[in-house]
Design a binder for these strands. Structure first.
Lengths: 231, 231
DNA sequence: CCAAAAGTGTTCGCCGTACACCCATGA
DNA sequence: TCATGGGTGTACGGCGAACACTTTTGG
């Protein structure tokens, strides 16, 4: 291949992926035990190296699939970390992503192979290099976005109850919300379809199941609507 | 140097910088004529290549200084662009930044050397590669941030009048604002020091000069204050 | 029958928005 | 004296926030 920029330094590039899940109680983070030097054995987020013929986004998708078996998940670029000394092994520029997955869907076998585990966000162990900085940035991004875009649903099963949805927001913001205000706000947006079915796993009375309707959201957007949840 | 990751592809990495300025009328963008192949002679934003011993942030600072002579300016990372085909010359991953500068301060000589010019954001010429995407993202970021953080002042001289500040917000959001509401909101935040001096360059009566007070802002932040301008 | 979670409405205060006239001054 | 831009206050409506009781049903 012709090289147009032959004099410039080539750099080692990585992608790292902060993976969030929700188990109906806590917001969680999928961490692996790093299996290469330096810092082998330390807790780390999942990462990999983009190939020369692979976009950053595709590299992130591949990394996520390697660990979880999942494709078609919410995945968003966070930030590029470019300090010279961030990886003590060698100068590596890392582009961080974060993903929101449905915690029941991931491939348990793959996760076991990678020596990974789910960690509560209130209880994150020491992480390798600057991964804690990435995680904190991912959390801030998630907290900002979940207020103004319907991305919370990416962390829930296809159908869910309003108490479940509220618990999710409470887990994200680590804050108790008022039940009446929350339901009023969510339902007033008109983005949820109510099913004729109750979930009885967490109460005798049972709670109605709902499903997020992306078409309604798109149509509302086109009419100048803005998603917003008060937290 | 020891290489810990010897098998991975090295990539060519660039930084590109969207530079905003305000001339009391329009929000403007500093564009250069690209002087290397491919696409030599096309309009482009300023860019460069991070050295192997240089952080991304420092590379962006260096690139900005090369074109404007300025250091100590507002500079924020935007996004990493990693499509394989984004630069037809060769696969290059580019980390984009945006800068807010005081348009009277830049080094005219350097800018002339780079064959650069200021373009109104409502009138941007065709740009090389995916630079237009970067510019659009920078504009969205600026518009989001200027509402909730006092970064607009980075585009104004040290002292400025309220009509000037309002004109700035109107230029950023391309929207006329109500004079009374704007002044009420800005002054109610208590972040501006009023000088005992008027600017008479744009009216006979003259408008009072103000200065943004970062200490007051920091103190307010510590007390749970949130900056916000309604647009 | 009772414990435990689901579901439901109203009031208040603040803030964003709309809106019109007087002031100061140089030419 | 007049044209030009600078400066000022009020009233209304909507929305976020606070708050307590009834319903359902399995055990």
């Amino acid at each position: 291949m012709t090289r147009f920029y032959p004099l410039e330094d080539r750099q080692l590039l990585a992608v790292d992926c902060v993976i969030f899940g929700f188990d109906n109680q806590d917001l969680k983070l999928l961490l692996i035990r790093r299996n290469m030097e330096p810092a082998s054995g330390m807790w780390s987020i999942m990462g990999g190296f983009p190939r020369h013929d692979e976009s950053l986004d595709n590299a992130a998708v591949r990394v996520l699939k390697q660990l979880t078996g999942l494709v078609d998940v919410y995945l968003e670029q966070l930030y590029a970390y470019g300090n010279v000394e961030r990886d003590p092994g060698e100068r590596v520029v890392s582009v961080a992503y974060y993903a929101l997955i449905r915690i029941e869907d991931y491939d348990k076998h793959l996760v076991r192979e990678h020596d990974a585990h789910w960690s509560r966000i209130s209880d994150i162990p020491e992480l390798v290099f600057d991964h804690r900085v990435m995680v904190d940035k991912a959390l801030r991004r998630l907290r900002r976005k979940a207020r103004i875009q319907p991305i919370g649903f990416e962390l829930l099963p296809d159908t869910f109850t309003l108490p479940q949805l509220q618990a999710l927001y409470e887990a994200i913001y680590q804050k108790e919300l008022d039940k009446r205000n929350f339901r009023k706000k969510i339902l007033s947006m008109g983005l949820l379809d109510k099913l004729e079915e109750k979930d009885k796993t967490s109460s005798k009375k049972g709670a109605w199941l709902y499903r997020f309707n992306p078409e309604k959201y798109q149509e509302a957007l086109a009419n100048g609507f803005y998603f917003s949840v008060d937290v």
